[in-house]
Structure formats: C-alpha cells, structure tokens
Nucleic acid binder design. Structure first.
Lengths: 236, 236
DNA sequence: ACGTATTTGTTCGTATGTATC
DNA sequence: GGATACATACGAACAAATACG
C-alpha cells in the first residue's frame, strides 16, 4: 500500500460506512473478526485495531465469546411529571408509534386495587399497548383505570389511539406522575417475541401510579421496556 | 389424614414455615417437585397445588425446566433528593453494609469529565464500593469526585467508610441528586462473581450526577444493582 | 451436567516503514 | 548516514467466555 493511510483506518472507515449505510442494523451482529480479516485480506490484529477504533467512537460493542454488535441507538426516556409516551418520544426528535394489544373491562386484582386505592374486584378498564419508536417496538404497557370514573374509556381509546386524548374525552385534562418503581428482570418468552428481542435481553419494568390534579389516583400502569434500547432519565 | 384440612394446604404451610424459618434462603433452589412428593408421601400433583399456593402468596417463583426458587426479598431503594446508601437502607429497617473495592486518583475520562463539567484529564478521586444489605451484596458503585475540590477524600474514606462523612470532613455538609439515568443489561462475569448472582441475572445500572447546595456538580456515580434483589422507587 | 465448537482476549515474536535527533 | 523510538502489520499459540447439542 502506498496510500499513506494506515490499513486499519481504512477498514474502520469502511465498516463505519457500512453501519451508517445500514448494512448492519442497530443491535445486529457484525461478521466475526476472522471473517473480516479474510474479507479485507489482512491479519486478525489489523481488524481488531479497526474495531477498537469503532468501539472508541461508540459505534459498536464487543462481547467476548459472542461477537461484535452494532450499538443500539438508545432512546432517552425522560420520566417527568407527566406520563405521556408520545410527547416524551417526540421531544427526542423521534417518531412515536404503537398499537393496541388488548383492551377490556375486568375486576381489579390485589395489586391494581392497592395501587388505585379501590376495593379488590372493583371494575377497571385495562388497556395494553405496544409502544414503538421509529417503527421499532420498545415497550409493552398495561394501564388500569377505575371504570366508574372513566365510562367509555376503551371506546374512546379505539378512536383516539392515545391515552391522554381518551382521558381528555372523559373530562380529564391533566394528570400527573405520583410514584414510579423500577425493576429489571429477564424477559419472558412472550416479551422476547413481542419486543423482538434476542434471548437473555433483560426488560426494564416500571410500575407507575398517576393522579389527577387533585391528587386522586386515576391510573396504575406497568410498562416493560426493551432494556437494550432504552434509558430512563429522572431529573430532580 | 382426617384433619379436615386439605393435604396441599398442610404441605403449603409446612413449606411456608420452612422458608420463613430459613431452611431455604432467599433465591435458593427448593427441592424438585418429585423430591417433595416423596418427602410428603403424596402425589406430585398435590405438591404442585401447594407450590401454586406459595406462588400466589409471592413466596416462591417457578421456572419451567429449572426449578422452584424462594423469592428474593427485594430491597425497596427510595431514590430521593439525597443519595445516601446507608440512610436509605436503614429507613427500610435493614442493615446497610459494604466494603471498599478500590480507591485511587486518576484523570477523568470522557464520560466522567462531561458529567462533572470538567476538562478531560482533570484529576478525580475514584471510590469503588461494594454495597451490602443484611450481609448480602447488592451493589457495586463507582463514585468520582473532582480531586481539587476534595483533597484527602480517599484518606478520609479509609477512616470513615462512608462517602457522606468523608465529604463532611472535606467541608461539604450536604449534597443533592441532580439527575439519575437508569438502564438494565446482562451482568458481566465480574459482576456475577462480586454480586454473587446466578448467570443471566440482569443488573440495574444507575448513573447519577450529584451537586452541592449551590448546584455545583461534585459527584458522578455509577451503581450496578443485583436486579433480583432491588427495586428503585422514584417519588414525585 | 458435560464436552465441543465458536468467538473474542492476551501475549509472545518478527518485520517493516516513518519520524526525530 | 546512523541511532532510536514509534506505529503498523503479520503469525502463532493459548486463555476465557459463550453457544449448542
């Protein structure tokens, strides 16, 4: 070579271009070091030097024994005063989306009843939603509302496809986050499928209680986020 | 039996007693259904009915193909205005503990520098600590402080074994949480060992920036919690 | 529970080109 | 030119983590 540019730099540039160009999607596995060494007809060390550069630039992540993976672009989910999925995502200049998974009226179980301060068995509306960001699934969230307070909520939701707007049609103009609990655990088989995760990816689970402006509890929600694509931010 | 109490209830009671009495520690594997069936001289179905009852009560967790496990008693970690491990744990009527893993002075890397709003390479004190609750490891936390502002911090820490008290001896009486980011990921091999986790357990990772009462950034901390033993609580 | 294959991590040694004094 | 230091590149072997049957 007489280019005056180190081979490993050229390789790093080529790979960076491949990633930027979408040849490897976020989170996808890159070819092995051996395969890349063959492709570029260089020693494995040279490929490793190029990959180290990409790691420094935060473009890929290397896991011993598993491989090299294109970095996920993580969504920074600002958990503020107001729990509003679409607003929070939009403020990151990303495209919020999603679809309804289930919606039904059912009696409150122990957990829901305790959170909403109602008696066990009291009817609640349950709305379960898949949340998407930039057309990729990111969360499954189950929301529970006392049925008596919000008649017709599910019907409204089917028209509006937005919890905020559905509550507005029930006469609730504003609601606030009271408390949020955060856990992490291994994803269940169903979560792996719905969130399109690779096995062993954890889920970040939040349990939130939200109130109206009078402090009355109006919603209990459980959300499960794909842990590799999200970061929750709590500011004081 | 002619006791008038269903056999499965008696078995459930016995097992619940065993667990409460500490015969099986939190997170430990219980005997297999087959073994329990033999021990109580009943059919496996009867044991399963008893276990189902314990699951309902939240005392155990069943994983298909792996076994039945005593539920971890999860620590409710209230992430409030003041980041103080011992205080937060004590307020749950649990015994906080821990030990120093590493302490050294080093130049700030990109991440630390950005968080503390200092130049890359500026000297910082790094204190890495293992956190324990009721004598069980629960967290690994790395704390970074600008060295110039807190001379002798590491020395004080070696005497005090408490960040709050060490900062006090540097003249800082109070400090506050500014922002906290929460992530979840698979635990590394080292984390598995240090936190005494079983493979594939996730870690809950928090990244916190803390300030003095004037709002000046004085600490950047990364904590990795054993996800199966902790729940973070953020109240508004 | 265990061995086997795969993949990345580490450490030797060797050689060459380039910049500096 | 010569001496030296440094970055680059190749080769081989083994260690460590992971995946899979």
């Amino acid at each position: 070579m007489q280019t005056g540019i180190a081979v490993w730099r050229q390789i790093a540039e080529t790979l960076a271009g491949d990633i930027a160009g979408g040849a490897f999607g976020p989170g996808e596995k890159m070819p092995t070091e051996a395969a890349l060494a063959q492709r570029f007809a260089v020693n494995r060390h040279t490929v490793r030097r190029a990959i180290a550069d990409l790691v420094d630039r935060g473009m890929v992540r290397v896991e011993q024994g598993r491989g090299t993976f294109v970095a996920e672009d993580v969504v920074e989910y600002a958990v503020g005063d107001r729990p509003r999925f679409a607003e929070i995502i939009s403020s990151q200049r990303r495209a919020p989306g999603g679809r309804l998974l289930r919606a039904q009226r059912l009696p409150a179980d122990e957990q829901v009843a305790a959170a909403l301060r109602i008696k066990r068995g009291t009817p609640v509306h349950m709305i379960e939603r898949l949340g998407e960001v930039d057309d990729r699934p990111i969360s499954i969230s189950s929301h529970y509302f006392p049925a008596k307070r919000f008649p017709g909520l599910i019907h409204y939701y089917q028209e509006e496809q937005s919890i905020t707007r559905s509550l507005a049609r029930c006469g609730l103009s504003d609601y606030l986050r009271l408390t949020t609990r955060v856990r992490a655990r291994r994803a269940s088989a169903e979560e792996l499928r719905t969130l399109q995760l690779t096995p062993n990816t954890p889920v970040l689970e939040t349990e939130a209680i939200n109130t109206d402006t009078d402090g009355k509890r109006i919603e209990f929600g459980i959300s499960r986020f794909a842990a590799n694509r999200i970061e929750l931010i709590f500011d004081s």
